[in-house]
Simulated scan of single mutants.
Amino acid sequence: MAEITMTVNGRTVSGTCEDRTLLVQFIRENQGLTGTHVGCDTSQCGACVVHVDGKAVKSCTMLAAQANGSEVTTIEGLASGGELHPVQAAFREHHGLQCGFCTPGMIMTAVDMIRRHDGKLDEHTVRSELDGNICRCTGYHNIVKAILAAAEEMGSGSKVAAE
């Protein structure tokens, strides 16, 4: 058994779990945060993407014990003060979701992508970096449109750096 402590969405949490417990399981089962989805368990679909210490990670391939002492942000932790994160708002505005299953992972990947590129993205880069996220509803056109709109809105200002 592993004793772990991490910060999840700004709140320090502790727990005991089996050594083999995946981060996605710890988030969903121990913390009750079900916005992070389990799709394939093989890191192929990207539905389980969360941020660990500010970087996008597929939580189905990371052990919870590996996140011990880390800061974890899930889709539930993006919104602030009752307002959607700019990427969440762009997905809503530009119809970047269909069934919604892939949406949390797409959004978490997009936030990281915008941060890493300082808000300067083009369609080719977005499509290339979404390679590890699968939308089974084939909604990529509006997803890409939403990410580009969010990147433009966030620009290279403090909203990008704050993530």
Rank of each mutant, 00 (worst) to 15 (best):
P86G: 03
D19F: 06
E163P: 00
C137A: 10
L23D: 05
A56Y: 00
E93T: 03
V72W: 02
C45N: 14
E18P: 02
H37T: 02
V50D: 00
N133G: 02
P86Q: 07
R116K: 15
H94T: 02
H51S: 01
V57Y: 01
G82H: 15
G35C: 04
S70T: 03
T7A: 00
M106N: 04
H51D: 03
S70M: 10
I107T: 14
K159W: 13
V52D: 03
V13H: 10
R11A: 08
V126E: 11
T138K: 09
T36F: 08
H117A: 13
K120Q: 14
G82A: 09
G69Y: 02
I114Q: 05
H141M: 06
H51F: 04
E152D: 13
T138Y: 05
L130K: 07
H117Q: 12
S128Y: 11
R127D: 11
V126M: 15
D19V: 13
T42E: 15
E71V: 00
V49L: 09
N30A: 12
L121P: 05
T7Q: 00
F91D: 11
C40K: 13
T42M: 13
A110T: 06
V38L: 15
A162L: 03
L63H: 06
A64D: 01
A110Y: 07
H94Q: 11
T12A: 08
V87Y: 06
T74W: 01
C17V: 11
T42W: 11
G119E: 12
T109G: 04
T42H: 15
I114S: 05
G69C: 03
L97E: 12
D41G: 04
D122P: 07
T21D: 05
T61H: 14
R115G: 02
P86W: 09
N142V: 04
H124G: 15
A149R: 11
Q66I: 00
K159D: 14
F26R: 00
A56D: 03
G105S: 09
V87G: 04
N68E: 07
R20Y: 08
G96L: 01
C48R: 13
F101T: 00
L23C: 06
K55Q: 12
A89C: 04
G32M: 09
R11Y: 01
G139H: 01
